[in-house]
Every structure is written in structure tokens, then in C-alpha cells.
Design a protein around this nucleic acid. Structure first.
Length: 561
RNA sequence: GCGCCAGUAGCUCAAUCGGAUAGAGCAACAGCCUUCUAAGCUGAAGGUUGAAGGUUCAAGUCCUUCCUGGCGCGCCA
């Protein structure tokens, strides 16, 4: 609906310019078509006249009066009026043009949406290849609640990008090389040799219950003298990392998050790509040696300071791997790279932009999305971990109590830019307070109403959409009309929560309609058919929205106990 | 000290290139269950958008300065 109006207004602008003897492109500034906050002003409004008022006044000297209002008048006169489309076009305030659509236009739109079914708002293939990297938690400890946010966000955003026609690959980068893996082995070995938890591990070792568990499992399956062998720590590193990775995979699958590929850091080193990437930087004159270390001159490309690639002890930094990894991503033919990271990676921004620049890629080709921290609450009280268990709250704590649907929806209710308070009691509660059930209940109600109607008479046959003219019915159709823009804006603005918000609004309208209007009328099959068609269309579009967030679409809700 | 993010109703948050009277949910208040599942609906109430300037027809949104909170500033990952 909005694209249609935008086209009509654009043509009116051109026609007005021509009528004044100006270049048809004289009025080519960006204007918006939006829904006024106050519904009495109309279904849609545009600021096109105000945006071009100054151009108009300059191009047509000697105007008498307010240029915005004068231009608005000319635009309204020039506006094409398709049959049965507008019911009113008015100029208001400082120069807004307000549009009211005829009921027939809404009814026709509903038919079109219904015909699109599950693909309403879907866009044709763009040919753009996008790599979305998310979670990428190191295999040195379990996933925590922050990773849950990254997982829900990356998964939902990937689905949205796909719906918008992009070719998306979801990837998990596994840091399976280097120091931290070695530290993992040492940490487990220490705990195996000191099973008494009152003995504190040395500085820098990993803590947490999982270390103790891993140590115990090694104690069970290995003979005593294994732990005295020089390679013991290395062997335990390897095996423990595998075990942790397998567990993370299982947690993610339980959460409904799956990846197209798991990319190993070790493979970059084994294949020689790391050295090749560094050589490439060297060719471009962007590296230098200092104090026995090799530096990348990222400060020349906008970073705060230069970054070490190879330490003076000869080992590579993780950053060197990251350079090679991103070079690898580009080499695989992706037009756009999206890295979804926790806010503690802010320092990453400048250096990775420098990497993109060094590789000759535009800044826009690499987007790093930082999501703010997650704070866990239970009934409004901050969730406390025992000190011994480590400072991070494992994702399992959430998953043990909360359904994946509820967890995902809550993770996606807010902009990634704001810290998220996640309340276990709220997430668990199967009540109206919990937004995911509120939205899912819409779907269940639509199915139940249809079943009830089907028991009375057949729903087959033509539907008379002109019977739908209650305010609540038109409001629902109007809401549906926005869905394609909402999905598009979610993708363009890295904002899956636009969709979450739209879903809650749509559910609000539906439940209100359901409360005010009887959908199933035994003595009026025609009207019942039309209302069921509307309910099921709302259900279909809301179902599409839920699916884009990775949330299931139930046909019925379990009865409250 | 520098960088990124945030500051909006009692609480948690929305507000899609700057639009008209800043919206929801929760909490608190008043109502609605012989009814298509009340996991619901209706009504009323709640605001100097952290502060001060600036830009313009128009600022929660853009610019400047300041205040508060979170995160980060390693030859750690």
C-alpha cells in the first residue's frame, strides 16, 4: 500500500513540476508516506509538499502565501485517483497531505494478501550473498545467556535476510587453536590433580563447575599415571574442546539454532591461509617489525592504534587469524559479511574496519553488530551465581526452565543496542504477561474459530469481502498492509525487534476484535465465512512473522492448569 | 583520559532517512466468564523524552557541551 502511494505521489510531483514548466525531476527529495499517530487524520499521510516547499518557492518566484500549502494544493490537484481507491485526500496542518482509502481498497488488499498466503512480504532473489557469523563462542566453556541473545538474533536476522531475497550462509567460527585451548587443558589438569575445590586454581585458569566435571570424567576414564605424562594437558585440551563443542551444538539445536557451516580456526593455519593473508598485508606495505613482533599498521586505515599479528615469541595472535578468516570469507564470494558479537568486542570495530579496507573492500561490506549485555532476573531479583561456578550464567539455566519459543521471543523484543533484562519468571509464565503466548494465542484462536465454524457449515466457496467493514476489521487489514515494510525495515536497520513489536501490535488488534465481535454466526454463513477468512489471513501473516523469528505457530494452546 | 552503547510513564521497553496530540506491556484503579479457550476484553489514570544551548515550517530523533550508567581500551582471548 505504501509503495503504491509513494508512486502516485511521485507522479504528482513530476506532473506539478511540468505544469510549472520546470524539469520533471525538480522535486526529487525523499519524502515519507506514513501512518499518522492520530487515526482521525487519515490512513496515511505524506510530507512531500513540506519537503519540497523551499525548492518550490525558489523555482517559482513571486508566490503569494505559504509555499508548502500552495504546493500541497497543486499536488492534490495533480494526483491520479484510481477507481475505488481514495475516499478522501486532504491538506492539513503545515502542509501534510492526508489520505483516506475507500473500504473497497482495503477489501481488495485483503484478497491480495490472502492470495499471497505464506509468502506475503517475501521478496524475489537479489543475488546478494551474505555471510552471517554468530555465537562463535570459544570451546573453552559452556554457552552463557549472552550467547543466547546472539544466537536468537543471528538466527532471526538470517531468516529475515533470506525472506528479503538474499542468499544467506550461517556460520560459526570455532577458535580451536592457540593459547586458550592450552589453558583449558591446564585448567582441567590442575583440577584433576586437586579435586578438592577449596584449592584455588592459579591466575588465568578457567574456573566453573564444568572444569570440575571434565576433570572428573578424565579421572574416571584414564589411569592414574596418565596425569603425570608431559602431554596430558595437551591431550585433555583436545578432547575437552571436542566435548564442549558437542555440548554447545546440542544446546543450540535444542534452541532451534542451526548453522550451515562450522569454520575451524585451525584449518586456516593448516592450509597456510594465515601466512598468505599476512603476506598480502606485507605486499601492501601495511606491516612492520618492532621489538621482535610483527605489526599491522591499522592506524593508517582508521584504527586507534596498530595491532600485533605475530608476537615476539613467534606465535600468531588471534587477530592474525581473524584477518585470514575475513579474507577467506571475501574469497568465498560473499558480498556482505555480518559479524554478530557481544558488546565486550567493541574494541574490534576499528581494527576490523581496517582489515576490510586493507583487503580493498568497502566499509559497508563488513557490518559488526554488537549486542549489549543480558542481565538475568528471577521475579525482578538479579540472578546470582555461586562464586565457585564462575561469573557467567550458562544458557542452560534458561533452557532448563523456559521454552525455546519464549526465550527467543524475549531475546528479540528489544533493540540489540540496549541491555536486556531477561526475567526467568516472566519467560516461564504462561500468561498474558508473556508476550510470546499473547501472540501465539492469536494463531490458536483463529484455528479454533475456524474449526467451530466448519462444524456448522462448509467454508468453501466465494467470499464476499465487502461484508468486512467494521472498524476492527479495517484496522486489522491496515495492520497487515504494513507487514512487508516492517520486514524490509527489520532487514535494512538490523532490527528484528521491529517485527516483534509489529507482532505484539497485531495481536493486540486481533484480540480486541475477537473480544468485540462474534466471528461465528450460525444464522449468517456469508458473514462468518468472510470473518474467518480475515482471521485466517491475519493468522497466516502473523505466522510468517513468528517463523521469521524462529518461533513456532501453534494450532492450539495447552489449556491453563 | 579516549572510544562504542544507553538514559523516554512507578518498572521493562517501542517510536522504521526529523513529522501533527510521544505509544505498548507490567504494577496500581473500575468493570466483563450459562458465550468462538478469560492465556482474553473494556474503561479511566499515568510524561518538562537526563540537563542546557543550537539547526528548521517541524526535534525523543540531527549538531555542540555537560551529567549518569554499561562495555571496552594487552605482544589476553
Amino acid at each position: 500500500m505504501i509503495p503504491q502511494l509513494t508512486a502516485l505521489i511521485t507522479r504528482a510531483l513530476q506532473k506539478t513540476a511540468q505544469g510549472r514548466g520546470l524539469d520533471p525531476a525538480a522535486f526529487s527529495r525523499k519524502f515519507v508516506v506514513e501512518i499518522p499517530a492520530n487515526p482521525e487524520r487519515g490512513h496515511f499521510s505524506t510530507n512531500a509538499a513540506m519537503i519540497h516547499a523551499r525548492d518550490f518557492a525558489l523555482a517559482v518566484p513571486g508566490l503569494k502565501g505559504n509555499p508548502a500549502l500552495l504546493l500541497a494544493r497543486e499536488l492534490v490537484d495533480a494526483l491520479e485517483r484510481p477507481p475505488d481507491f481514495f475516499s478522501a485526500v486532504e491538506i492539513a496542518g503545515p502542509g501534510f497531505i492526508n489520505f483516506r482509502l475507500a473500504k473497497a481498497a482495503w477489501q481488495k488488499l485483503l484478497q491480495e494478501i490472502r492470495a499471497r498466503g505464506d509468502s506475503y512480504g517475501k521478496r524475489p532473489p537479489t543475488g546478494q550473498k551474505i555471510l552471517v557469523e554468530y555465537v562463535s563462542s570459544n570451546p573453552t566453556g559452556p554457552l552463557h545467556v549472552g550467547h543466547g541473545r546472539g544466537a536468537a538474533w543471528g538466527d532471526a536476522f538470517s531468516r529475515i535476510l533470506e525472506y528479503l531475497g538474499h542468499e544467506v550462509t550461517r556460520e560459526y567460527y570455532v577458535n580451536d587453536a592457540g593459547n586458550q585451548i592450552a589453558t583449558l587443558g591446564k585448567s582441567i589438569l590442575f583440577r584433576a590433580l586437586h579435586p578438592d575445590l577449596s584449592v584455588p586454581p592459579p591466575e588465568g585458569h578457567y574456573k566453573g563447575a564444568y572444569i570440575k566435571e571434565l576433570a572428573d570424567s578424565f579421572l574416571q576414564k584414564r589411569p592414574r599415571d596418565f596425569f603425570a605424562e608431559p602431554q596430558a594437558a595437551a591431550i585433555m585440551s583436545e578432547e575437552a574442546a571436542q566435548a564442549i563443542l558437542a555440548e554447545m551444538r546440542a544446546d543450540l539445536v535444542a534452541f532451534g539454532v542451526e548453522f550451515d557451516s562450522w569454520f575451524s580456526e585451525k584449518s586456516l593455519i593448516a592450509s597456510g591461509e594465515l601466512e598468505k593473508a599476512v603476506a598480502l598485508l606485507r605486499e601492501k606495505g601495511l606491516v612492520y617489525e618492532k621489538d621482535g613482533a610483527l605489526f599491522f599498521e591499522s592506524s593508517a586505515l582508521g584504527d586507534d592504534k596498530d595491532r600485533v599479528l605475530r608476537k615476539s615469541d613467534g606465535s600468531w595472535t588471534y587477530f592474525a587469524s581473524d584477518v585470514a578468516y575475513h579474507a577467506n570469507k571475501y574469497a568465498r564470494g560473499f558480498d556482505r559479511l555480518i559479524d554478530v558479537l557481544g558488546a565486550d568486542h567493541v574494541g574490534y570495530l576499528g581494527r576490523m574496519r581496517a582489515v576490510a579496507r586493507a583487503l580493498g573492500r568497502p566499509d559497508a561490506s563488513l557490518k559488526i553488530v554488537l549486542y549489549q549485555l543480558v542481565r538475568l532476573f528471577r521475579g525482578g531479583v538479579p540472578y546470582k551465581m555461586s562464586v565457585r561456578a564462575g561469573e557467567f550464567i550458562p544458557l542452560k539455566v534458561v533452557m532448563d526452565e523456559v521454552s525455546p519459543d519464549a526465550a527467543r521471543f524475549l531475546y528479540l523484543t528489544q533493540s540489540h543496542d540496549s541491555t536486556l533484562d531477561f526475567d526467568l519468571e516472566l519467560a516461564k509464565s504462561q500468561s498474558a504477561e508473556n508476550p510470546v503466548y499473547y501472540v501465539q494465542y492469536l494463531c490458536a484462536r483463529a484455528f479454533q474459530v475456524r474449526a467451530k465454524a466448519q462444524a456448522l457449515f462448509s467454508l468453501e466457496g466465494d467470499i464476499d469481502f465487502s461484508l468486512l467493514s467494521e472498524p476492527g476489521e479495517l484496522a486489522l487489514i491496515q495492520k497487515l498492509s504494513l507487514f512487508p515494510e516492517v520486514v524490509g525495515a527489520s532487514g535494512d536497520n538490523f532490527a528484528p525487534h521491529f517485527l516483534t513489536t509489529w507482532l505484539m501490535d497485531a495481536a493486540k488488534l486481533f484480540h480486541r476484535y475477537y473480544g468485540e465481535t462474534r466471528l461465528v454466526l450460525p444464522d449468517n454463513p456469508e458473514l462468518t465465512r468472510a470473518r474467518i477468512a480475515l482471521a485466517m489471513t491475519v493468522r497466516a501473516v502473523v505466522g510468517t512473522g513468528l517463523s521469521l523469528l524462529g518461533v513456532s505457530v501453534p494450532e492450539r494452546m495447552a489449556k491453563e492448569s
